[in-house]
Design a protein around this nucleic acid. Structure first.
Length: 805
RNA sequence: GCCAAAGUGGCGGAACUGGUAGACGCGCUGGACUCAAAAUCCAGUGAGUGAAUAACUCGUGUGGGUUCGAUUCCCAUCUUUGGUACCA
C-alpha cells in the first residue's frame, strides 16, 4: 500500500473529532498538565510556517504528557480585538466582526489541518461579549481598588487627522507631512507601579528564560537612591532632586530641572524670563522621540536662580533642560559632571564647573570618570567626611547624614510607569464607566456593556472614539442622574491578560472562574510563545494575575510557571518573513504538498526550538523520506498488505538501540529538544530498515515514540498492525537501563592528546586491561618508539592517553 | 553607549559533568534497479599534501592561557542577532 497522506490525515481528523479523543480529562485523581500557546490575533494574511512552530511544539508536549498519564489542558482561542480589523473597516466599511469571523475560520482550518490536539470545546474569543464581560469585570475590580484612574496624559496628537498616534506611527506621519504635537488628553491609567516590587521579586521563582526575566527587571528598573532638598534662597520652597549617587553630593556643581517642572518658570529671574519661556514652549512642541530618542546635543537654559548645596553650603546655578524627564524621580537632578557623562557633556557645553570627588585615574576636566570602584575625595565639611570611603559606605553615610539633618530621605524609584489603558478606538472592550452631569464617575454594573453598532469607524472630531457619535448608546440616565458613557475602549492587551484562566472554565456565567477548577489547573505549566512578548504582555498579565490573587479569584501568585520562547523562523533568504520581501511560506502551501506530519516534523527538525533559523523547503524532503521509510516498515510493497509482525526476540544490537531510543526520545521531548529526538528516531528507523526488522515490539515502540510528533501516520499504521484503540491512548514505553549502553565499546588511543588509533573492549573493562590493549594498537605504537612515557591517563569506556617526551 | 545570547563542513545543525569534532538531515558524486524517468536501495562526501580505501598536517570567529587532553573552562578581541535608549 502506498502512503497517501491527504486521505490518511483527513480520516484521522474526523475520527478524532467523532470520538472526542482530545477532550480534556476530568479525572481529578490524575496529575494535571496545562500547556498553553500564546493565542493568535487572527490576521487576514493567514498562518505561515513560522506561526506553526510554537503550536507544533506545544502539541507534541501535550500528546507526550498524555502518554505519561497526565490530564492535559491544551486549549486555543483568539485575541481578536485589534487595529487591523478596524482599519479594514475604515477602508471598506466591513464590520470588524465579520472580518474577524472569517479570519478565525481560516486560522482554525489550518490549525486543524495540522492535527493539533486542542480541546476545541474550550475555544474562546476575546471579542465575544460573554468573554469581555469578565474583562470588564476585572476592570471594575481594578477601579474599585483604586488601581484604575483618569489622568491627563500627553499623547501624540495629529492635528490634521484629529487622532492620537502610537509612538511608532509618529515618524511615519511626520514624513507624510502631518503635524504631530504632544497634547494632554484624558486617559484611563492602571496603577501597575503599585505592584512594581512584587512583579520584580516574584520573577526569581519562575522557570523562565533568564534573558526574559532580565528584560523585565530592566523594564521595572528599580533603583535605590536619595531625595535631597536644595534650599532656594529666593523662594520659600526647596528644590527636591533624586539621585542614586548621594556619595557625590560634594561634587554637585549645578542643578537641572525638567521644562515641565512646576518651578521651571517661577525660578526664572526677570532677566532670564523670556529665554526660559521660549525654551519651555519649544520643549512642548517636540515629540517624545525627538526629546529622548536620538543621541543628540543637549540643550538647556539658565533660570538665573541658585540653590544651596547642603553639603558645601555653596550656591549652585539651576538650569532647565529637556533631557531631564518630569515623569521620573522628582523631575529635577543634581549634576555631578566629574562622574556622570551626561552631566559632563552638559557642563562642557555651558561652561559649568567640574569638581572631582571620586579618586580618578585621569583629569576629570578632560574626561569623565564614571567608575564606581574608587574612593571619595574632596568630600568633607565640619560635620561629615566621605574621604576614602567606597561607594556603598559613602552612600550610607551621606544618606544618614541627610536624613538626620532632615534635608533628604532614602527613596526607591522604578522606571516602570503606570499603564495607559485607554484607546480612542471602536474595536475594543468598552470601558464600563458612566460620567454623570455632576462630574461624578460610576461603574456600569450591568455587564457586559456591549459594543454598539456604528455607521462609521473613523474617530470623532474631538479625538474621541467612534462611540462618541452613537448618541443612543452614549447617553442615558439612572437613579444617580443623567450620564454620558466612557467612549474610550481598552487596549488589545486587555483580553490577553487573563485568557489562560478562562480556558479552565469557559462557560461559567456566574464567575470568572470556578475556584475548585482554578486550584486544580493553575499554574500554566508550560507557556510557549514568541520573545516579542517578553515584556509587555507578560508583565501586564502578571500584574492582573496578582490583582486577582489579592481578590481571592486565583490561588497562585504567578500565572505561568515555565515560559519558553520559540525562535523565529526566517524566510529561505535568511531574512525575516514579510509580505514586502515576498519570502513568506504560507502554511497551506507546505501542508498540501507534504502533509501535516511532515510539516510538524520538519518544523521541529530545523534546529533547537529557541533558536532563530531559516526555513529551507528542500530540507523537508528528508522528512518525507523518513516518513516513507516508517511506512514501508509496515507496508513494504506498494500493492501488498501490512507485513506480518513477528514476536521472535530481536537481535541484541537492535534491542539495545531500541532502549537507547526510548531513553533519548523521552528525555529530549521532556526538555523540548525535539530536533535531536527526531534524529534519534531516524537512527532507529535506519537500523530497523537495514536489518529488515519486522519485530512487533520494535515497530510498536517506534510508532508510540513517534506519535506525538507525527500523529496521523502513526495512528494509521497502529491500526494497520491490528491495534484498535487510538495510539494517543498508549503509554510512553519505558527502557531497561542495562540495555541503553553498548556491551562493546570503541576505545580511543591518544598520544599527547592526539588520536592515533582505536580498539574495542567490553564495557567497564579495568584500567589495566585498557592500558595493556592500548599498548598493542599498531597505529599508535610507532609514536611510542624511542619516547619516554611520562604519564598514562585512562578514562574507562572512553580512551587511553599516553603523554610522551 | 548599555544589557543578553550566539559564532562548528557547501547548507540546517550534533557533541553527556573537559575525553575519538561534524550525529541526523539537505545538497553533491558514483553505483544498483529501469527501455527511460520518478521512487527506492548501496557507497562516498571538513580542508590540504598523496596514485592511494596508506600516511601525515591543519581544522569549531580571532589572539593568548589553564590542562595529559579544550567546540566545552579563563582572559582579551572581532562579528552577528535580540532588547533598551539621556530613568540621574
Amino acid at each position: 500500500m502506498k502512503y497517501e497522506f491527504p486521505a490518511i490525515e483527513k480520516k484521522w481528523h474526523s475520527r478524532w473529532q467523532a470520538d472526542k479523543t482530545f477532550k480534556t480529562g476530568d479525572d481529578a485523581s490524575k496529575p494535571k498538565y496545562y500547556v498553553l500557546d500564546m493565542f493568535p490575533y487572527p490576521s487576514g494574511s493567514g498562518l505561515h510556517v513560522g506561526h506553526l512552530e510554537g503550536y507544533t511544539a506545544s502539541d507534541i508536549i501535550a500528546r507526550y504528557k498524555r502518554s505519561r498519564g497526565y490530564n492535559v489542558l491544551h486549549p486555543m482561542g483568539w485575541d481578536a480585538f485589534g487595529l487591523p480589523a478596524e482599519q479594514f473597516a475604515i477602508k471598506t466599511g466591513t464590520h470588524p466582526k465579520l472580518t474577524t469571523e472569517q479570519n478565525i475560520r481560516n486560522f482554525k482550518e489550518t490549525l486543524q489541518a495540522m492535527g493539533f490536539s486542542y480541546d476545541w470545546t474550550r475555544e474562546i474569543n476575546t471579542t465575544d461579549a460573554q468573554y469581555y464581560k469578565w474583562t470588564q469585570w476585572i476592570f471594575s475590580q481594578l477601579y474599585d481598588r483604586g488601581l484604575a484612574y483618569m489622568s491627563e496624559v500627553d499623547v501624540n496628537w495629529c492635528v490634521e487627522l484629529k487622532a492620537v498616534l502610537a509612538n511608532e506611527e509618529v515618524e511615519e506621519k511626520i514624513t507624510d507631512g502631518y503635524t504631530v504635537v504632544r497634547r494632554p488628553l484624558r486617559q484611563w491609567v492602571l496603577k501597575i507601579t503599585a505592584y512594581a516590587e512584587r512583579l520584580l521579586a516574584d520573577l526569581d521563582e519562575l522557570d523562565w528564560p533568564e534573558n526574559v526575566k532580565q528584560m523585565q527587571r530592566n523594564w521595572i528598573g528599580r533603583s535605590e537612591g536619595v531625595e535631597i532638598d536644595f534650599e532656594l534662597p529666593c523662594h520659600k520652597k526647596n528644590l527636591r532632586v533624586y539621585t542614586t549617587r548621594p556619595d557625590t553630593l560634594f561634587g554637585a556643581t549645578y542643578l537641572v530641572i525638567s521644562p515641565e517642572h512646576p518651578l521651571a518658570e517661577k525660578l526664572a529671574t526677570a532677566q532670564q524670563l523670556v529665554e526660559v519661556k521660549q525654551y519651555i514652549r519649544q520643549a512642548k512642541l517636540k515629540t517624545e522621540l525627538e526629546r529622548t530618542g536620538l543621541q543628540k546635543e543637549k540643550t538647556g537654559v539658565f533660570t538665573g536662580s541658585y540653590a544651596i548645596n547642603p553639603a558645601t553650603g555653596k550656591p549652585l546655578p539651576v538650569w532647565i533642560s529637556d533631557f531631564v524627564l518630569i515623569s521620573y524621580g522628582t523631575g529635577a537632578i543634581m549634576s555631578v559632571p566629574a562622574h556622570d557623562s551626561r552631566d559632563w557633556e552638559f557642563a562642557k557645553q555651558y561652561n559649568l564647573s567640574i569638581i572631582e570627588v571620586i579618586k580618578s585615574q585621569h583629569d576629570v576636566q578632560e574626561q569623565v570618570f564614571e567608575d564606581k570602584n574608587s574612593v571619595c575625595v574632596n568630600s568633607s565639611n565640619d560635620e561629615i567626611s566621605l574621604d576614602g570611603l567606597s561607594f556603598s559606605d559613602a552612600f550610607e553615610r551621606m544618606a544618614s547624614w541627610l536624613e538626620r539633618k532632615q534635608v533628604g530621605e532614602r527613596k526607591v524609584n522604578y522606571k516602570l510607569r503606570d499603564w495607559i489603558f485607554s484607546r480612542q478606538r471602536y474595536w475594543g472592550e468598552p470601558i464600563p464607566i458612566k460620567h454623570y452631569d455632576d462630574g461624578t464617575v460610576r461603574l456600569e454594573t450591568n455587564l457586559p456593556l456591549e459594543l454598539p453598532e456604528v455607521e462609521a469607524y473613523h474617530p470623532s472630531e474631538t479625538g474621541e472614539s467612534p462611540l462618541a457619535n452613537i448618541t443612543e448608546w452614549l447617553y442615558g440616565s439612572d437613579e444617580h442622574g443623567a450620564f454620558r458613557r466612557e467612549t474610550n475602549t481598552m487596549p488589545q492587551w486587555a483580553g490577553s491578560c487573563w485568557y489562560y484562566l478562562r480556558f479552565i472554565d469557559p462557560e461559567n456565567h456566574q464567575h470568572l472562574i470556578d475556584s475548585e477548577q482554578e486550584r486544580y489547573w493553575m499554574n500554566v505549566d508550560l507557556y510557549i510563545g514568541g520573545a516579542e512578548h517578553a515584556v509587555l504582555h507578560l508583565l501586564y498579565a502578571r500584574f492582573w494575575h496578582k490583582v486577582l490573587f489579592d481578590l481571592g479569584v486565583v490561588s497562585t501568585k504567578e500565572p505561568f510557571r515555565k515560559l519558553f520562547n520559540q525562535g523565529m523562523i526566517l524566510g529561505e533568504d535568511n531574512e525575516k518573513m514579510s509580505k514586502s520581501r515576498g519570502n513568506v511560506i504560507p502554511a497551506d502551501h507546505v501542508l498540501t504538498r507534504y502533509g501535516a506530519d511532515a510539516v510538524r516534523l520538519y518544523e521541529m527538525f530545523l534546529g533547537p526550538l529557541e533558536q532563530v533559523k531559516p526555513w529551507n523547503t528542500n530540507g523537508i524532503e528528508g522528512i518525507s523520506r523518513f516518513l516513507g521509510k516508517v511506512w514501508r516498515l509496515v507496508y513494504p510493497t506498494l500493492d501488498g498488505a501490512a507485513t506480518e509482525l513477528s514476536s521472535a526476540p530481536m537481535p541484541e544490537g537492535l534491542l539495545r538501540r531500541m532502549h537507547k531510543t526510548i531513553k533519548k526520545v523521552g528525555e529530549d521531548t521532556e526538555n523540548l529538544k525535539f530536533n535531536t529526538a527526531i534524529s534519534e528516531m531516524m537512527v532507529f528507523v535506519n537500523e530497523l530498515q537495514k536489518a529488515g526488522c519486522n519485530n512487533r515490539e520494535a515497530i510498536e515502540t517506534l510508532l508510540v515514540l513517534l506519535a506525538p510528533y507525527a500523529p496521523h501516520i502513526t495512528e494509521e499504521l497502529w491500526e494497520a498492525i491490528g491495534r484498535n484503540t487510538s495510539i494517543s491512548k498508549q503509554s510512553f514505553p519505558s527502557y531497561d537501563s542495562t540495555l541503553v549502553e553498548d556491551s562493546m565499546l570503541t576505545i580511543a588511543v591518544q598520544i599527547n592528546g592526539k588520536l592515533r588509533g582505536t580498539f574495542t573492549a567490553p564495557a567497564k573493562s579495568s584500567k589495566e586491561h585498557l592500558l595493556a590493549e592500548a599498548r598493542h594498537v599498531e597505529s599508535a605504537r610507532k609514536f611510542l618508539e624511542e619516547k619516554t612515557i611520562i604519564r598514562e591517563i585512562v578514562v574507562v569506556d572512553k580512551l587511553v592517553n599516553f603523554a610522551v617526551k
